[in-house]
């Protein structure tokens, strides 16, 4: 992994209008690095969904992006409420988002399934009352 680059970001959990800023920054970086558009698109969609989840459910957290020539590995770590039932959370249409979030066009219960769809591997490590860590791996295509 000598050729890999690591970027770390803090996600502010206070302001929903700022959600997506990190995803936007990472997208620009990956473009500058000359990665294939299809890979960048998958990373951007999955990251944006996860970043929004982090803001609306967990009051922020940290995102670490490791870019190597073959793989992009992203870790989303928060100290939010955790996910009591992961199978339920993975169901399309299931959501615990507030009315306010839904009014902004989100919270349709598509986030986690869409993150999974756009990554080659996803793991969720969660403990109720302690937080959630989601890890994604995308092959550079």
């Amino acid at each position: 992994m000598s050729n890999s680059m690591v970027f770390r970001y803090d996600v502010d959990g206070d302001d929903f209008t700022l959600a997506g800023e990190i995803s936007s920054k990472v997208k620009k970086r990956l473009k500058q690095l000359g990665l294939p558009p299809e890979t960048i698109r998958k990373v951007a969609i999955a990251m944006y969904e996860a970043e929004i989840n982090m803001v609306i459910h967990a009051n922020g957290g940290t995102i670490t992006v490791e870019v190597s020539p073959e793989t992009i590995h992203i870790i989303f770590a928060d100290r939010g409420p955790g996910i009591p039932d992961i199978d339920k959370a993975m169901e399309e249409g299931f959501s615990t988002a507030s009315h306010e979030v839904r009014e902004l066009g989100f919270g349709a219960g598509m986030g986690l399934p869409n993150i999974k769809k756009n990554s080659d591997k996803m793991t969720i490590d969660t403990k109720v009352g302690e937080g959630t860590t989601i890890e994604l791996w995308m092959e550079v295509c």
């Binding site: 997506g20 995803s23 936007s24 997208k27 558009p37 698109r41 969609i45 944006y48 902004l104 066009g105």
Partner: peptide, 17 residues
């Protein structure tokens, strides 16, 4: 085309190219 008016609409469009 959307009837929604907030910054996340612009961000969503950005992510989707």
């Amino acid at each position: 085309l959307t009837g929604l008016q907030n910054l996340q609409v612009v961000r969503t469009a950005e992510m989707m190219d």
